[in-house]
């Protein structure tokens, strides 16, 4: 019995020799349980060793293997060939990021934005280690838990046309991470983050396309976090008119 094969089209870009990306077709042996990264592994091991792509954990927690699969941002590890038998399968690097090589995109800007929102617990009061842990109830955890499940895969940035149109926009994951810390009962850093929220580059760069939440592989719902950020920013806007805050 001959082995069933499937055609996989992969975006290639070799900066030393190419001026622009191009598409290359490969024939890959098909199995029901094959994921997109399994197919890429097969190509790299058997057909073309120069193919570059990021991957690591194979279980949707490291966030490395984000690609555009038939134009939709997906994790390569939890996307299976069996779902593309009728449509064919095309793999490209994540949209809205510069292409470094083949399927590897330059996510430097995304990582900078994550840093920018001060994603750590900020305390205004002076507490020492001897004072013990900051306690939190399950109800307080529920306020931000969903937003803490982000794996920084960048699929939401590839889904977001506002980030694509203007990458000054902080984007879904960074604004969600910001919201996650603002909603944390142990955190007192809201005032240090509110300037980002209030800016055009902050929540107001969002027009609620909603595709970020659609493609998120962890059910984080960044669109909801940003929408709640708009409500927060609106309240802050009114308060600033009633009682002007520090000017910085």
């Amino acid at each position: 019995m001959s082995q069933a094969m499937m055609r996989v089209t992969v975006q290639r870009y070799r900066p030393e020799q190419d001026d622009a990306p191009f598409m290359q077709e490969f024939e890959v042996p098909y199995a029901d349980d094959m994921s997109v990264i399994d197919a890429l592994h097969y190509i790299k091991d058997n057909l073309d060793g120069t193919l570059s792509y990021r991957w690591s954990c194979r279980m949707a927690i490291c966030g490395s293997c984000g690609y555009m699969v038939n134009g939709v941002p997906k994790l390569g590890c939890k996307t299976f060939l069996r779902d593309y038998l009728n449509t064919g399968l095309t793999v490209e690097s994540l949209a809205n990021f510069p292409i470094e090589r083949d399927l590897v995109s330059d996510i430097g800007d995304f990582v900078e934005k994550l840093e920018e929102v001060k994603p750590y617990i900020i305390r205004q009061d002076a507490v020492s280690v001897q004072d013990g842990e900051h306690l939190q109830t399950p109800a307080q955890l529920t306020r931000y838990r969903q937003y803490s499940l982000c794996i920084n895969c960048g699929l939401c940035y590839a889904a977001c046309p506002q980030y694509g149109l203007n990458n000054e926009f902080m984007g879904p994951a960074a604004l969600t991470l910001l919201h996650r810390y603002n909603q944390d009962s142990r955190d007192q850093g809201r005032d240090e983050r509110i300037d980002i929220v209030n800016a055009e580059e902050g929540v107001w760069g969002c027009t609620f396309v909603g595709y970020c939440s659609e493609v998120c592989p962890k059910g984080v719902d960044p669109a909801a976090a940003i929408q709640q950020g708009k409500v927060e920013s609106s309240k802050d806007f009114v308060m600033s008119k009633l009682r002007p805050r520090r000017s910085s």
Binding site: N198, G202, W204, K230
Partner: peptide, 10 residues
């Protein structure tokens, strides 16, 4: 960062 006037229009 500059505060956007968007809350009024939003």
């Amino acid at each position: 960062y500059q505060r956007a006037d968007e809350p009024i229009f939003w």
